[in-house]
Nucleic acid binder design. Structure first.
Lengths: 216, 216, 216, 216
DNA sequence: GATGAATGAGCATTCATTCAT
DNA sequence: GATGAATGAATGCTCATTCAT
């Protein structure tokens, strides 16, 4: 086993002109389509380039490698979700500053529904993303960074309504709620259990609210 | 991807003699080690064979391809978990046929703990397994088959203690409980959140029991 | 600039069986032919494999890369030269232990001629070798290792006949004599100056002997 | 290799205006820097252009290809050396027309020293140049053309002092002296033998003078 | 049964060069 | 004149799988 040190040039072009931006978008679009249809490992740079109607070399002038497009795609997806959820939360708390039990319940319901609905991504692509987040450190990091934002939001929510919240370990609770809701989302998305979507969502809400809020 | 095979010859040898069984075990052991250390995609047949101190050809006479060893490994792991949990459940219900509220709680706690402790598999290998279950239909099927057993067990548990259980949709509840517990297990295993194991387990128990059982 | 550490597997096969040895020889032969005809940089692994009538993969199972074949070829050539010169020197000094001035002269003449004649390698390949020894550290090292043997031989010669040698810095002298003789050899081989081979060899002998030995 | 061009369009621009000349100089400077630091083969047009702070297209409007810049660089270096040596020789023979033995010796010493000191080029770049002169016909030709000038100078020197020179084959002697001095220069420059520069230069002078001049 | 030499399609990546803007 | 986006042939290398010994 020899050990060699190599310099990775990081020569990815950052397009400034309209044409370049369009080309990059075409590549991302083609990559998303192929990753969704065939999976990440079954897709190669040649196919992505062909799908975007550009040459292989053009792909490599915008991205250093296949993983980089994937990272860009999922960063965009995750960010979109966390931004939407955050925005919605801010709107609601601004409009309804009063913190009654009923409001706490409504807001919790809202956040859960928000998360469940925001993953607009195709379920096949979602599988690829989840798998890659397990297999690849960099992708895992991107996922965790975006998840941290939602966790912070959940902690903020619990602090806002702390008088109506029965649990005390906000940090652990936020993580658990996020992971649990995500997992339920995946079950709903992948729907391979024969149990209908609605039943799962209803139980998800039940379990989360019962955990968060004391008995009325 | 490399080769689109229409006819699957399935020429894998099923060893009957002691020597053959030992060879197969050596191959499985080597594969497990490599999948854990380097990951599934980073491991090739040559390395598995070398690790088992057999020739590449020998590997291919016991397994049709790399995925087959992986399937065998995870089938063994999942089966082990479901068998242990099942066995334990049966022992407890046999010994304690009375179904008081307290017993229901104790047993629920037991099942959760059982599941949390039974995944003895290395966390790196677990990541590989979860990723593969997302990426590959066959692996997904194996996982689901074994999970179905635990779900049935949970449904049985709920039926046994139905008078003390507050939820009514046993099927959905069992799936949710399993998935939730699994997810928590992964958080505990991967431990990348900075939250201690004990806090996570405590909250997991809390959330599950509160969901299952009515307020005392 | 990112920095990455990569493990180079060094998976080159060392053939033990007759068939493997023959295959390796075929590859080396094909590589030598192509490096000579087209030059090192103009030759690729595919062509070497084709020339040896084996698959590309076979080439890569015997050599990690193109440079490795090249290194093997030149190591063989250099070693051959130094071994022949050394052998001849030992034979002569064994047969003629007396160290008169005349013998010193004869032996010097012999060594020069030996070196001049031993580079049996084609002049085009020699150019490739010299260029690579300038461009590549590893090839340079191989060259220097083999040259050191001849330098040691020349130092030994000077020590043996030290009473008849006019110079005192044996180490520098040996290096200079070697490099000078090599350079003359290249001029003779490359013959691009229009000066005949014989004139160059005559002058080479003259300059070397006049440097080494005092005036009679 | 990449493209077999039959028609050489030679569309390289010859800059007349100040700005164009400056741009060309920037390109040459950048190329020299990169060839020295990374080597000829490891440098590409993009990097040269980037180093000169011009676009890739600009590079190709001044030079038809990478080799052309290299040729320009080495032509400049070699010409510089031969011009300096020639100039110095003319100055000395003009100032000291008398041709005594002592003067012959002094002048020889001077020429050797001149050559040894004039290769101001970085040793890494020198390696690249020597290698390219071995690998490429055009570069070889440039080198030979410039060397011919020094050889002619040496022949002129020998003719001027022919009464004090012991050798008769001026042409062969001039070539040998040049090649020998060059080779010694490289040994001094590359200095990979552990022998100090001064010892090598002293021996070089000794060997050359002893070859040229009879015993006093 | 075991071996390991051989295969060759397949993939990631590079880069000299062109040309529309 | 300058630019830099685009090209695509070419290359080094891998590895699942076969099969003669």
């Amino acid at each position: 086993m020899k050990k060699a040190t190599v310099f990775l040039p990081n020569k990815a072009r950052i397009p400034k002109q309209k044409r370049g931006i369009e080309t990059k978008e075409k590549i991302v679009k083609s990559a998303t389509k192929l990753f969704t249809e065939k999976g990440y490992h079954q897709t190669n740079a040649q196919q992505i380039a062909a799908g975007a109607e550009v040459a292989k070399g053009t792909f490599y002038s915008y991205f250093n490698n296949k993983k980089e497009v994937f990272a860009e795609i999922i960063e965009c997806i995750f960010r979109n979700v966390s931004e939407k959820v955050l925005l919605n939360f801010e709107l609601k708390t601004y409009k309804n500053p009063a913190d009654t039990y009923k409001e706490a319940k409504n807001l919790a319901q809202l956040i859960i529904n928000q998360m469940l609905s925001e993953y607009k991504v195709n379920h096949k692509l979602l599988k690829q993303i989840l798998a890659m987040a397990l297999l690849d450190k960099e992708i895992e990091k991107i996922r965790r960074t975006e998840e941290k934002k939602i966790i912070n939001l959940l902690i903020l929510y619990m602090q806002t309504y702390k008088e109506h919240i029965r649990i005390s370990d906000f940090e652990a609770a936020a993580l658990i709620l996020l992971k649990f809701t995500e997992e339920m989302l995946h079950q709903v998305k992948f729907g391979s259990t024969g149990i209908e979507k609605e039943r799962l969502i209803r139980e998800t809400e039940d379990i989360a609210l019962r955990y968060l809020l004391p008995n009325p």
